[in-house]
Computed example of a mutant assay.
Amino acid sequence: MQLIFSDPYYDNENWDEAVFSNEIKNSLTQVLDEAPSIHYSNIGHGADCPSVLVELFNTIDWKTIAGTSLVGTFLLGDKINKNLDAWTSIGEKLSAIINKLKPARIDEKAALAWVVNDLAEKGKIHGVIELNIQVIPFTNGPCKTELQLESQPDSLYLISAKLVDNVFVYGLKSNSKLEFLKEFDTFWGEF
């Protein structure tokens, strides 16, 4: 899972990129059970926008909690409760990070965890949940790197969450802004 934080000290005299990266690392270590991986990045379009890209939950085997892909996350038989608990735990920590530290960009794993946490906080998750995501990339980042979020920082994540009695469709931008949320009843009479 990747998050990007814009460096607020960039325009200051005596700027040192290590100052902000250390602050972010220390803040994240208070919320997480592990130290995050920190990378210097730049997401400026036409001008520098020095930032810190953080990789979180590196010790998690994403295939264990997300199946072979991020689609159909909780359709894994006897692993459902374990997977749901893992995603809910990740979502709670991620929401705390987003609310406190305000990342400039989040990746699709973070978007999915945010959605699962939102549904859990609303008391909507009971039993099996089927998640699907479509990533709609907008502009490419100024840097082509192996770090996916730095290379493609501007995206819209369309996430559907099918529960027993309803379906939720989220439109979440990579800047973590919820653009829309629509709820549908799955009762056949609604069609």
Rank of each mutant, 00 (worst) to 15 (best):
M1R: 05
Q2E: 13
L3T: 00
Y10G: 02
Y10L: 08
N12V: 02
W15D: 05
W15R: 07
D16A: 08
E17V: 11
E17A: 09
A18G: 04
F20Y: 15
E23T: 13
K25M: 15
K25V: 09
T29W: 03
T29C: 08
T29G: 04
Q30T: 05
Q30P: 02
Q30S: 13
Y40P: 09
N42A: 08
N42K: 08
I43F: 13
I43C: 11
D48W: 10
C49F: 03
C49N: 14
L53F: 06
L53P: 01
L56F: 00
N58M: 11
D61S: 00
W62S: 04
I65T: 00
A66N: 03
L70M: 11
V71D: 14
G72T: 00
L75W: 03
K82H: 06
K82D: 10
A86W: 06
T88Q: 11
I90T: 05
I90P: 06
G91S: 04
K93P: 01
I97D: 01
I98C: 01
A104K: 09
R105G: 05
R105M: 08
I106D: 02
D107M: 03
D107N: 13
V116C: 11
H126A: 06
H126R: 12
G127D: 13
G127I: 11
N132L: 11
N132D: 15
Q134A: 11
F138H: 12
T139Q: 14
N140L: 09
G141V: 05
P142A: 08
T145S: 10
T145Y: 05
E146D: 12
L147M: 05
E150W: 07
Q152F: 08
P153V: 07
P153Y: 09
L156R: 03
L156M: 09
Y157D: 04
L158G: 01
L158M: 12
I159T: 10
I159A: 09
K162D: 09
K162E: 14
L163H: 01
L163K: 00
L163T: 04
N166A: 07
N166L: 07
F168V: 12
V169W: 07
G171T: 06
L172P: 04
S174R: 04
S174L: 07
K177A: 14
E179S: 14
E179P: 05
L181A: 01
T186W: 02
T186V: 15
